[in-house]
Design a protein around this nucleic acid. Sequence first.
DNA 1: GCCTTTGTTCTATTAGTTATAGAACAAAGG
DNA 2: CCTTTGTTCTATAACTAATAGAACAAAGGC
Lengths: 130, 130
Amino acid sequence: MIINVDLAAEVPIYQQIRDQVVEAIAHGTLTEGSTLPPIRTLAADFGINFHTVNKAYDLLRQEGLIRLSRKTGAVVTAAATDQYLPSDWTAKARTLLAEAVARGIPADDVLHACRTLLDSFSATQQEDKP
Amino acid sequence: MIINVDLAAEVPIYQQIRDQVVEAIAHGTLTEGSTLPPIRTLAADFGINFHTVNKAYDLLRQEGLIRLSRKTGAVVTAAATDQYLPSDWTAKARTLLAEAVARGIPADDVLHACRTLLDSFSATQQEDKP
DNA sequence: GCCTTTGTTCTATTAGTTATAGAACAAAGG
DNA sequence: CCTTTGTTCTATAACTAATAGAACAAAGGC
């Protein structure tokens, strides 16, 4: 999988790594059983400290998206764990959607943008099942 | 308008204030010309420092949602300023939607949650126009 | 059994953010 | 003239982000 880190961005590096793994799982680039690179390897690739990568992986572990073990490394766990959206997700979504509406974007356009993004996840899975 | 601040939350106080003003604008509780309380008043109401409120108002000003002037105070500016969603909005939305999908929530359910939230903004405007 | 690979834990430091505090300034209006 | 309001300045304490280095612990390969 391809991860890009922008050292100059306002978003913390560990958050960028976490976000891109989440997006890769949603997109199907990473599926259950996929392994992530060792923290030291990924850190070396980006020229960052391995503690920063470790923080990202630890976050993903807390969220239940990956499983960590020595030697096995970081392995993506099952997808279908949650049944409902957690309340803090809804709160974040409310704020984000409100941002768009407050700027004068019609609700239909905002919803369409969401649909397009959601479609982009399931559009081109890396494994086809015909 | 009603603003609530949770001092124990992980979200910074100035961000909470900013978010709630954005949501109030999206909801129609605050419309063009509405005035926000003076920073010192709002700070006293919450028992926080006025610099914290000032930071929230300054953020809103940078986003073009309110206009600040001495004596006039903070006034909500026009809504329909932007025509398109900025790219960083889309990036944030992509991450948030991916979070839900990665947890195994079906895309349809996620989209429905977005629709429900968007509906809640325009549902009960404070001014009806029959 | 030894060694390598891997995540884990510890302390430490630097830079930046968040929130508080107090003081003073500046403009607009009654 | 004075009050109200946002603006700017310095300062401080607590927390976060990122770096750094060292050491530990378990799992697997040879």
